[in-house]
Amino acid sequence: MTDALLALVRRDLRLAWRSPAETLLGVVFFLVALALFPLGVGASPDILARIGAGVIWVLALLAVLLTLDRLFQHDHEDGSLDLLLLAPLPLELAVLGKCAVHWLTSGLLLVVASPVLALLMNLPPDAFWALPLALLLGTPSLTLIGAIGAALLLGSRRGAVLTALLVLPLYIPVLIFGVAAVDGVVLGLGAKAPFLILGAIQLAAMALAPWAIAAALRLASE
């Protein structure tokens, strides 16, 4: 079982590695969209520092949302999803493996890029560890929750827009506590609770989301 899971993870990683343009799309969007904010709201360092954490988190949500379609879309089109459904490996586990790879090639890149964004938004020094840490705890939940939406909409007529409608409302708790964690550190209010809640959301998503994703995938290939 572990062998099959590892083989799946290796395959997905290799696929991501061989189409770097697609893999880096999310993080490039993250950077480009951020550049719009200083131009839009004015480049005053105070304003940027105040809204920085929130803006970066919102962009992280959107960047993950942009990359969701590559989770199952290709596999659905070329038929490998059907093989995955037939395989002896439990689908819930396979889904968890696919989500892990998706996070490694989307969320983790955002975590790595986030200190640069914090610099661009003139965030105080404390944010340089708080923001990546909050993203590290929060982005896996984004992948898992988003995967439910992506799986539900496989083969639908208006996939992309609908994914946003389904997934963004469910992202709101992660956003709230993600920003609260960074602001708590930056403003010195204490950030233990939001960090713990981010972790709790991630654990709950890891335990529950694979069931919903697997159910949606079975439905998609009926």
Binding site: L165, L168, A212, A216
Partner: peptide, 28 residues
Amino acid sequence: FLYLGYMALHDAFEDPARGARAASILAL
């Protein structure tokens, strides 16, 4: 938003049965 998403998802497929079951998962 969940209500809106449910209704949109329900009507997003060529096959109404597929939409109904997908929307049920979202409702849960």
